[in-house]
């Protein structure tokens, strides 16, 4: 499917941009930043134009569909874009740790390569006695 082609284009472009941005991404993932946290720019030249190209065939509805929703559907949704084959996790994960291919899982969505600025919230520095687990609610 065309989405893989687009993903490869993203990956090629990302290699170049992340060579320069990688340090910043690493800083963004650091746990040693002082507070208030700095703002970082994570490099990516893929823009915001979506992960599809002209040969993708979206469905005729999806979010915003005019059909009343009556329940959940475990199968692919109308308009949902899937890669032809599972993405190569190694090839899609940049040295900076961001996901450069079409995201299909929640971690991939959350950690996409992006041109957006970000600012970390360092749980281990800001939360009392935080060790990765949360205290039970009282």
């Amino acid at each position: 499917m065309a989405t893989n082609t687009m993903s490869r284009r993203w990956a090629v472009a990302l290699v170049a941009s992340l060579l320069t941005a990688g340090g910043l991404v690493a800083a963004c993932s650091s746990n040693s930043n002082p507070q208030p946290a700095p703002v970082y720019q994570v490099g990516n030249d893929s823009g915001t134009d979506g992960g599809v190209d002209g040969t993708t065939t979206p469905g005729d509805s999806g979010p915003g569909s005019d059909a009343a929703e009556t329940g959940q559907d475990d199968g692919p949704q109308d308009g949902q874009v899937l890669p032809d084959a599972p993405e190569d996790a190694v090839a899609c994960t940049t040295d900076a740790g961001c996901w450069s291919c079409l995201p299909t899982t929640t971690p991939e969505f959350l950690n996409q390569c992006t041109t957006s600025q970000c600012t970390p919230f360092i749980n281990t520095q800001r939360l009392p006695d935080f060790d990765g687990s949360l205290p039970p609610l009282q």
Binding site: T3, V52, Q72, G79, V81, F109
Partner: peptide, 18 residues
């Protein structure tokens, strides 16, 4: 949108609007 979801804070999926 380039992401869709089917339910409150459900897992997102890549979405191509018609």
């Amino acid at each position: 949108m380039q992401a869709g979801r089917d339910g409150d804070l459900a897992a997102p999926y890549s979405y191509a609007p018609p």
